[in-house]
Simulated scan of single mutants.
Amino acid sequence: MTFQTTPAFDRDDKRLSKQHQATFRRLIPRFNAAAERAAAGEPSPWPNGMRVKPVKGAEGVWELPWSMDYPDGRATWEWATIDGTQGIRWQRIGDHDVFASP
Protein backbone atom coordinates (compact mmCIF):
# COMPACT_ATOMS: atom_id res chain seq x y z
CA MET A 1 0.00 0.00 0.00
CA THR A 2 1.34 3.40 -1.01
CA PHE A 3 1.20 6.11 1.61
CA GLN A 4 2.21 9.67 2.28
CA THR A 5 2.03 11.99 5.26
CA THR A 6 0.87 15.58 5.59
CA PRO A 7 3.07 18.25 7.21
CA ALA A 8 0.64 18.22 10.17
CA PHE A 9 1.16 14.46 10.60
CA ASP A 10 4.94 14.90 10.46
CA ARG A 11 4.82 17.62 13.14
CA ASP A 12 2.51 15.54 15.33
CA ASP A 13 4.70 12.47 14.93
CA LYS A 14 7.79 14.35 16.15
CA ARG A 15 5.90 15.24 19.34
CA LEU A 16 5.03 11.64 20.17
CA SER A 17 7.05 9.75 22.74
CA LYS A 18 9.39 7.11 21.34
CA GLN A 19 7.15 4.47 22.94
CA HIS A 20 4.05 5.77 21.16
CA GLN A 21 5.92 6.04 17.85
CA ALA A 22 6.99 2.41 18.21
CA THR A 23 3.46 1.28 19.12
CA PHE A 24 2.02 2.97 16.04
CA ARG A 25 4.70 1.61 13.72
CA ARG A 26 4.16 -1.96 14.96
CA LEU A 27 0.51 -1.69 13.87
CA ILE A 28 1.28 -0.44 10.36
CA PRO A 29 1.95 -3.83 8.65
CA ARG A 30 -1.41 -5.14 9.90
CA PHE A 31 -3.13 -1.90 8.91
CA ASN A 32 -1.54 -2.00 5.44
CA ALA A 33 -2.73 -5.57 4.87
CA ALA A 34 -6.29 -4.56 5.82
CA ALA A 35 -6.09 -1.43 3.64
CA GLU A 36 -5.06 -3.60 0.68
CA ARG A 37 -8.16 -5.75 1.29
CA ALA A 38 -10.33 -2.61 1.54
CA ALA A 39 -8.87 -1.21 -1.69
CA ALA A 40 -9.65 -4.53 -3.40
CA GLY A 41 -13.29 -4.15 -2.37
CA GLU A 42 -13.53 -6.77 0.36
CA PRO A 43 -16.72 -6.13 2.36
CA SER A 44 -15.19 -6.36 5.87
CA PRO A 45 -11.45 -5.75 5.54
CA TRP A 46 -10.75 -4.16 8.93
CA PRO A 47 -10.14 -6.52 11.89
CA ASN A 48 -12.61 -5.81 14.71
CA GLY A 49 -9.84 -5.09 17.19
CA MET A 50 -8.45 -2.38 14.92
CA ARG A 51 -11.63 -0.25 15.27
CA VAL A 52 -11.12 1.67 11.99
CA LYS A 53 -14.07 3.95 11.32
CA PRO A 54 -14.99 7.22 9.61
CA VAL A 55 -14.46 10.40 11.61
CA LYS A 56 -17.82 12.01 12.37
CA GLY A 57 -18.18 15.44 10.81
CA ALA A 58 -15.10 15.08 8.57
CA GLU A 59 -16.17 13.57 5.27
CA GLY A 60 -13.60 11.23 3.74
CA VAL A 61 -11.42 11.14 6.87
CA TRP A 62 -10.96 7.89 8.80
CA GLU A 63 -9.72 7.12 12.30
CA LEU A 64 -7.27 4.47 13.43
CA PRO A 65 -7.07 4.15 17.23
CA TRP A 66 -3.67 2.64 17.97
CA SER A 67 -3.36 2.93 21.76
CA MET A 68 -5.86 2.88 24.60
CA ASP A 69 -3.19 3.61 27.22
CA TYR A 70 -2.69 7.10 28.61
CA PRO A 71 -2.17 9.10 26.57
CA ASP A 72 -4.48 7.48 24.06
CA GLY A 73 -3.32 7.21 20.46
CA ARG A 74 -5.29 8.17 17.38
CA ALA A 75 -4.32 8.68 13.77
CA THR A 76 -6.48 10.12 11.00
CA TRP A 77 -6.12 9.34 7.32
CA GLU A 78 -7.87 9.47 3.97
CA TRP A 79 -7.86 7.47 0.77
CA ALA A 80 -5.82 9.31 -1.85
CA THR A 81 -4.34 8.79 -5.30
CA ILE A 82 -0.57 8.77 -4.89
CA ASP A 83 1.62 8.44 -7.97
CA GLY A 84 -1.37 7.13 -9.90
CA THR A 85 -2.32 4.39 -7.43
CA GLN A 86 -4.76 4.26 -4.55
CA GLY A 87 -3.08 4.83 -1.22
CA ILE A 88 -3.33 6.28 2.26
CA ARG A 89 -2.58 9.89 3.19
CA TRP A 90 -1.95 10.12 6.93
CA GLN A 91 -3.42 13.40 8.21
CA ARG A 92 -2.81 13.66 11.96
CA ILE A 93 -1.46 11.53 14.82
CA GLY A 94 -1.64 12.00 18.57
CA ASP A 95 -4.42 11.83 21.14
CA HIS A 96 -8.08 12.86 20.90
CA ASP A 97 -6.94 16.43 20.15
CA VAL A 98 -6.38 15.37 16.52
CA PHE A 99 -10.16 15.41 16.06
CA ALA A 100 -10.23 19.20 16.48
CA SER A 101 -8.64 19.38 13.01
CA PRO A 102 -8.61 15.84 11.59
Rank of each mutant, 00 (worst) to 15 (best):
82 I>C: 10
71 P>M: 01
48 N>G: 15
42 E>D: 14
50 M>C: 05
25 R>E: 00
92 R>K: 01
11 R>H: 07
80 A>W: 04
4 Q>T: 14
18 K>Y: 06
37 R>D: 14
9 F>W: 15
28 I>S: 03
56 K>W: 03
15 R>E: 14
31 F>T: 09
96 H>P: 08
81 T>I: 15
46 W>H: 07
43 P>L: 08
52 V>P: 07
70 Y>A: 06
22 A>V: 04
52 V>M: 04
84 G>F: 09
14 K>N: 09
71 P>Q: 08
5 T>P: 04
34 A>S: 10
8 A>W: 03
43 P>Q: 05
44 S>L: 11
20 H>S: 08
75 A>P: 10
18 K>V: 13
4 Q>L: 11
30 R>P: 02
77 W>Q: 01
70 Y>K: 12
1 M>Q: 12
40 A>H: 07
89 R>I: 07
87 G>T: 10
101 S>F: 11
84 G>W: 07
5 T>Y: 10
69 D>K: 12
24 F>G: 06
51 R>V: 01
59 E>W: 01
7 P>C: 09
81 T>S: 12
50 M>P: 05
11 R>A: 09
49 G>T: 02
29 P>A: 04
49 G>Y: 00
59 E>K: 12
52 V>N: 05
72 D>M: 15
45 P>E: 02
75 A>T: 15
31 F>P: 09
64 L>T: 06
58 A>G: 06
71 P>S: 11
54 P>L: 03
26 R>L: 11
10 D>I: 03
28 I>D: 01
40 A>I: 10
50 M>A: 08
91 Q>S: 11
61 V>E: 10
20 H>F: 04
64 L>G: 05
24 F>A: 13
25 R>I: 00
86 Q>R: 14
31 F>S: 01
85 T>I: 11
3 F>N: 13
84 G>K: 09
65 P>D: 01
46 W>F: 14
93 I>S: 00
11 R>V: 09
2 T>A: 15
76 T>Y: 08
43 P>V: 07
102 P>W: 15
77 W>K: 04
9 F>S: 02
86 Q>I: 11
63 E>Y: 04
79 W>P: 05
96 H>M: 03
59 E>V: 09
21 Q>F: 00
2 T>G: 05
57 G>N: 10
93 I>H: 02
35 A>W: 12
63 E>M: 10
74 R>K: 07
46 W>P: 11
28 I>C: 05
23 T>G: 02
2 T>S: 15
78 E>G: 09
33 A>G: 02
81 T>D: 13
5 T>E: 08
51 R>N: 05
9 F>E: 01
97 D>Q: 15
13 D>E: 15
86 Q>E: 12
17 S>G: 14
38 A>S: 12
48 N>Y: 05
22 A>M: 00
99 F>D: 01
